[in-house]
Amino acid sequence: MSETVDFWEQHYGAKDRVWSGRVNARLAEIVEPLAPGRALDLGCGEGADAIWLARRGWQVVGVDVSPTALRRATEDAAAAGVGQRIRFEQHDLAETFPQGEFDLVSAQFFHSPLDVDRTAALRRAADAVAQGGLLLIVDHGSAPPWGWKDGHEHHLPSAQDVVDGLAPEPGRWERLRVEAVEREATGPEGQVATISDNVILLRRLG
């Protein structure tokens, strides 16, 4: 078992459920008015976003490194009646990446306390966007007080830092949103704090 798999298996194995089961707010806000197509959900965790998309008619590939998270996601998708619209795949995105092109590629809070090449994975995500499709990256712009407490300081890139790292080819991408947006967040013990999200929304042109 790789270090990445081991870390995330311990993370998901520590609780019966890690996430709320609710769709990420920025994803819902941006995708709600869109016509459904093919979607790729990177770091899908326990599958809430993938299930939300499938309920709205999207065909979804959900990717995570943790077998435990993917098992829970598969069970929840079946219980929601959308299992046939979602294919869950295990990938360590530093090593392998799902095949195909997608009308929507979503990376919601694709952070890790491990030393991984996040920029390389996001560039591969951009390469997977079909002509006319969208790349949506939502990052932590500020850390909540209940975030990772592993003794290390983790750099949180700005929205512009993320775009700079992607190095989108001029004339091939349209910047729809590159900004920081504040929201109220609730922690695992019910704590409440105002934090910011970086929202990066790019459209692949012809």
Rank of each mutant, 00 (worst) to 15 (best):
R118V: 15
S106K: 03
A121C: 15
R87L: 12
V65D: 01
R71M: 11
R123K: 15
E89R: 10
S142C: 04
L135A: 08
H91V: 03
A130S: 15
W58G: 06
A107G: 02
F109I: 10
F102M: 04
R71W: 09
A130D: 15
F97R: 04
E95I: 08
V63R: 02
I86W: 01
E95R: 15
Q84D: 12
A78Q: 14
L93W: 05
V138K: 07
L93K: 01
P113L: 08
D92Q: 08
G147Q: 05
A107L: 13
P67C: 07
A126I: 02
R72M: 11
P67G: 07
S106I: 03
S66P: 04
W148L: 11
D92I: 06
P144S: 09
F109Y: 15
L93C: 10
Q90V: 05
D139A: 13
P144N: 08
D139M: 12
P145M: 08
A125S: 10
F109S: 05
T96Y: 07
V61F: 03
F88Y: 15
G141L: 09
F110R: 05
Q99P: 01
H140P: 09
S112V: 11
F102Y: 14
V105L: 10
R85A: 15
V82W: 03
T119M: 15
A125N: 05
Q90W: 01
T74V: 05
L114W: 06
A94Q: 15
A79L: 13
T119F: 13
D115W: 04
F88D: 01
W58L: 09
H111N: 11
D139L: 12
G132R: 12
D150A: 09
A80L: 09
R71T: 11
W58C: 08
A128G: 08
A73L: 07
D64H: 12
A79G: 05
S106Y: 13
V129Y: 00
R123L: 10
T68F: 07
E89H: 01
H140Q: 12
Q84P: 00
E89L: 12
F97N: 04
E89P: 00
K149I: 05
V138T: 14
L104D: 07
G132Q: 11
F110P: 00
F102G: 03
A78F: 09
G100D: 10
